[in-house]
Amino acid sequence: MSQASALDPFAVFGLARSLDLDDKTLEQRYLRLSRECHPDLHRAKDTADCIAVLQRSAEINDAWKVLRDPWQRARALVELLSPGALDRTKRLDPAFLADALELAEEVAMANGDAVPPLRTRIAAALEADFAAVRAELQHGAVDAAARRLHASHYHRKALQDLDAKS
């Protein structure tokens, strides 16, 4: 785990922990926070002050990176709600993995006209993953949400592989 993930990015931004953040609000807050403690604008009086400003500015940037991406935001949220959840749930259902393997094969074989519908299907699977993560979190089922986040990796990778072909 990187140091950035040890911090609560929601707290850095002064936001309630939630999977659904408004993009515009988030960006506005990022710009405001950045302005407030930009190392160039913020003339530090002494060295200690200067280091604090730099550190705060790094925290804001790290939190921004996590919060602006819904998937990273989801991972951070899961870990905050139940530390260790992602690690605990790594063992995925063999039936799901068998499907993931089949999908990978399908991606490897796909060409021409078969590519667009396949891309649509995988994109839909990724969307379904995110909707499921949201639903599990709403029910307080953090481990189930973590499992679905792991599952989404296979769909994302399949999509990347498909895009890499064209």
Partner: peptide, 9 residues
């Protein structure tokens, strides 16, 4: 046996 490493897909 079907196993996976979700970190790397």
């Amino acid at each position: 046996g079907v196993v996976g490493a979700p970190e790397c897909g």
